[in-house]
Write a protein that binds this DNA or RNA. Structure first.
Lengths: 147, 147
DNA sequence: GCATAACCGGATATTGACATCCGATTGAGG
DNA sequence: CCTCAATCGGATGTCAATATCCGGTTATGC
């Protein structure tokens, strides 16, 4: 339902949100988030292209959030790596039918709209601020006891 | 986001709901729903196993809804062919962490729960009864003008 | 300006979803 | 009981998502 890529991107972004304005290397991010390092590298590159994240090469380089966590919604990260495709025209491909969806597809699209709404509802900052015994990603340095 | 298989299954079920208690062959269903016939056959077999649909072989056979359309929810069809996998444990695989989800995964699971709720909200009968100019699937016999 | 650190981008597996094909099986009707 | 209609089940093909590898490029610090 949710792709692995989305899951990975969200883990990485959430981790970077715990260290705002600081950069981390792919290897560091991969270790904390438990994401295959080579693939994570690709995912981060997508986030760079969508200007969610900024990259710097060379010594001391790495990846860093492009904006403060208060300004980054889950939805943006989802859309960056695996966009939710709303149903805008009849999937049976009848041009004459135009933009009107039949009741079945209207409901499917409504469900997708609910997803969007849910993902748009919170920022990375809100996720980190939430009072809980479960530290985000379960395994951040701050939650070593969680291991 | 929603798999092709779900889309196909819903089209087929919606069509069968327009002719309750009657059976239709794979070829008939495929033509109306614009689904590849060979693959549709597999999808229908899944629906048979999940007791959404009943099959009969031989002359005059085919597929028929196992229940009246009032008793069949979209969610059941979704779960039959491509179940929504709720997040019940931390995806980072830390056994010690138990059942508690971190704020990130709690939100993701909440979004999935919203989907379930949306899909559970309507029956096939409701879809067909809805007053609209767009006949379900856009291209049913009853809506030949839609072609 | 050289060595080193780190990302970038292209080529290449691997895997599962989607799709097809066909022989085997079952049921209806004469 | 024979033929035809139709589903069933297994084998196989195709393609996009996932994942890996490595040489090229850029930046830092000495």
């Amino acid at each position: 339902m949710l792709s692995q890529t989305v899951e990975y991107a969200l883990r990485a972004a959430t981790y970077l949100a715990t260290v705002p304005k600081q950069s981390r290397t792919v290897d560091q991010i991969a270790e904390v988030t438990h994401v295959p390092v080579a693939y994570l590298s690709k995912v981060l590159q997508q986030l760079v292209r969508e200007e969610i994240v900024i990259s710097r090469r060379g010594t001391g380089g790495g990846f860093m959030l492009a904006r403060p966590p208060e300004k980054l919604r889950i939805l943006e990260i989802v859309q960056a790596v695996d966009p939710i495709e709303r149903i805008t025209t009849c999937p049976l491909g009848l041009a004459a039918h135009g933009k009107r969806l039949c009741p079945l597809h209207r409901r499917l699209d409504n469900a997708l709209a609910e997803m969007e709404r849910a993902f748009a509802a919170s920022t990375l900052a809100e996720i980190l601020a939430e009072p809980t015994k479960s530290v985000p990603l379960c395994n951040f340095p701050a939650a070593a006891t969680c291991r």
